[in-house]
């Protein structure tokens, strides 16, 4: 039996717990200084430094074969579900409700004078149906607004310089910020080209000189980032579905109550 020389085992999770307590202490201290509309990202720089220090330490202490672990991480990462089918369905339904609603408004305006020729019962029934559809249109607007806010959401990983997006997988950590303006002056285009050339050289050198442990770090970082992203995608999707279900149920129940009141002679 071969006995392998092992390092004296550190109490499991002790360093981790100490670092987490440190981060929580820093968070308490920094959060008091956060004001509305202030640059709050500055406040978590010491927190990121602490997390990054511990992360680096863990990577350094890793004694296994980096490539084996990288393959395991890649396999797991590829199996992460990063989208939700419900969101697209709900958004599509809301778009259709709005489209039909717009057509309905046009028709109603055209034939509003004819409604007086109908019997009172029919007029009241049409009014209830109109109210029901108006509620669906309002619900669709709310859902679409919510969807746009979700799409505009800035994920926490975007704010971190070292432990957020890993440089091989996302441009934030690799490319000099580019302008969003499609029309640029000659100076701007020249500067952007210079930045491109410099970024390309930095990137190439990084790729070619990447050590196995650095690769491991990048893979691990990206794996966790995607899991965090998955959490937001799924929770946002759940919220959108909940809003739609609540609203739709409310509108249907209201229509039923209104019809019941109408047939009961209350309307």
């Amino acid at each position: 039996m071969v006995e392998t020389q092992q390092k004296p085992a550190r109490p499991a999770g002790d360093d981790l717990q100490a670092t987490i307590r440190k981060i929580e202490g820093l968070a308490r201290e920094q959060s008091r200084q956060i004001k509305w509309f202030s640059d709050w990202t500055v406040k978590f720089e010491p927190i990121e430094a602490e997390a990054d220090k511990f992360f680096k330490q863990l990577i350094e202490e890793f004694s296994g074969e980096p490539d084996d672990l990288i393959n395991v991480i890649k396999g797991r990462r590829e199996r992460l579900s990063l989208s939700s089918g419900i969101t697209n369905q709900i958004v599509s339904i809301c778009q259709q409700i709005l489209a039909f609603g717009a057509a309905g408004i046009a028709l109603t305006v055209g034939f509003i004078d004819k409604i007086r020729q109908l019997s009172v019962a029919v007029q009241k029934s049409l009014a209830i149906i109109g109210v029901f559809y108006s509620e669906l249109v309002l619900l669709s607007l709310v859902v679409l607004l919510w969807y746009m806010l979700q799409a505009r959401f800035r994920y926490p990983s975007l704010y971190f310089e070292n432990i957020g997006n890993a440089w091989p997988f996302f441009y934030y950590a690799t490319i000099t910020p580019v302008t969003r303006a499609p029309i640029q002056t000659a100076d701007q285009r020249f500067a952007a080209s210079v930045a491109y050339a410099k970024d390309f050289l930095n990137f190439t050198e990084k790729v070619l000189k990447e050590e196995p442990k650095e690769r491991l770090r990048a893979e691990l970082q990206q794996y966790f980032l995607l899991m965090s992203y998955q959490a937001y995608v799924h929770q946002f999707s759940l919220r959108l579905a909940s809003i739609f279900i609540y609203g739709f149920t409310g509108a249907v129940c209201t229509a039923v109550i209104m019809f019941a009141a109408f047939y009961g002679g209350l309307l």
């Binding site: 009014a127 209830i128 109109g130 109210v131 029901f132 108006s134 509620e135 309002l138 909940s242 609540y246 609203g247 149920t249 409310g250 509108a251 129940c253 209201t254 229509a255 109550i257 209104m258 309307l267």
Partner: peptide, 17 residues
């Protein structure tokens, strides 16, 4: 959630009606 939604829809419906 359902209770709030029904209450809001009903209030809107009565007002609109």
């Amino acid at each position: 959630g359902f209770a709030i939604s029904i209450a809001l829809c009903l209030a809107f419906a009565l007002f609109a009606y």
